[in-house]
């Protein structure tokens, strides 16, 4: 028999009996961050590839939503802070050791840039719009000249943003499920895949949807590979890693993870996308909606499960 208990009594809220400090705010933010990164990356990419005419939903329409996503995400982050009025302390220093620090700075750069990008295309989407002030016309003209530069910066920043959503968690070595370097790439491809799914949802052009669907399939299969890779890595690890993997292999998150994330969120929509590319008629919103929901559930599951895993002594 081996039994361990607090004889002095210890029942600290959100920490005992197991850590549950981060609630819905963080996974929602991670989801919106990844989604925004995906949308912005492909907007930048297809702009640089000179596909402005063929890929209008990717370059013009979808990025209009990004500032809203980012602001909601940042709002969720703010809600999560417990010492809220001191949030500005984040921007008094840069600490490269702390992913949360450089992630906060990345967001500080991405958010205004995404607003500028969306602003420069606003009149392409709404042709009847007239600016109330003359300086807005001027700003729009200047921004139009610098679109290429913006596209490159957006692509780079969105990769950093996408990876950051995973590295944020993998930096915590106290939580063995998170403490795997695959989490960065995994959240990046997952975020890009949700971004593509969202853009496909908006696009009305058959050509554009076909191009995006093909890329999305590559990302979904990469994500599935990374998930298996993550579980294999944990299974080959120490006792704490084995217990972390066990949460998905028979433990309490098994059904949520395999049914809602892997099957309904990845495998099934991928099958539908393949069928669509083969010429079968599939309502376009179904795979996209499933991928988006799957991506959200995925982040909730990883966050909840990670907080349960811990060192044993």
């Amino acid at each position: 028999m081996k039994e361990e208990l607090f004889v002095s009594g210890r029942n600290i809220p959100n920490i005992d009996p197991y850590l549950h400090l981060w609630h819905w705010e963080i996974p929602l933010y991670l989801f919106l961050g990844g989604l925004s990164a995906g949308i912005l990356f492909f907007a930048g990419y297809f702009y640089v590839m000179r596909k402005e005419r063929d890929m209008s939903a990717t370059i013009k329409l979808a990025p209009l939503f990004v500032p809203f996503f980012l602001v909601i995400g940042l709002g969720a982050l703010f809600l999560d802070l417990h010492h809220k009025l001191y949030f500005w302390q984040l921007y008094t220093t840069i600490r490269f050791e702390s992913p949360m620090s450089w992630g906060a700075w990345t967001l500080m750069a991405v958010t205004p840039l995404s607003i500028l990008w969306a602003f420069s295309y606003l009149r392409d989407v709404f042709p009847n719009l007239k600016w109330p002030y003359a300086w807005l016309d001027k700003l729009e003209e200047i921004l139009k000249k610098y679109r290429k530069a913006m596209a490159w910066v957006l692509m780079m920043l969105s990769i950093i943003l996408g990876v950051y959503t995973g590295i944020l968690l993998s930096a915590f070595n106290a939580r063995p499920l998170w403490n795997t370097s695959i989490l960065g790439p995994l959240f990046l491809v997952s975020g890009f895949s949700t971004g593509l799914a969202f853009t496909i949802l908006l696009s009305k052009s058959k050509y554009e949807r076909k191009v995006l669907t093909r890329i999305d399939l590559i990302f979904i299969f990469t994500e599935l590979f990374f998930i298996i890779h993550m579980l294999m890595g944990l299974q080959a690890g120490t006792q704490v890693s084995l217990e972390a993997a066990g949460l998905f292999l028979g433990g309490e998150f098994t059904v949520t993870f395999w049914v809602f994330v892997v099957i309904l969120g990845l495998a099934f929509p991928a099958t539908l996308e393949v069928l669509e590319l083969r010429g079968y008629h599939v309502p376009g919103w179904i795979p996209s909606a499933l991928i988006l929901i799957g991506g959200l559930v995925f982040r909730f599951v990883i966050l909840e499960a990670g907080q349960i895993t811990r060192y044993l002594y």
Binding site: I12, L21, D80, L81, H82, H83, Y86, Q89, L90, A174
Partner: peptide, 21 residues
């Protein structure tokens, strides 16, 4: 305390659960 934003990153990173909000 004047620099802490209460994000909880330190709590998540402590293997000994020695911190609280």
């Amino acid at each position: 305390p004047e620099e802490c934003i209460g994000c909880g990153a330190c709590i998540e990173s402590c293997p000994y659960d020695a911190r609280y909000v």
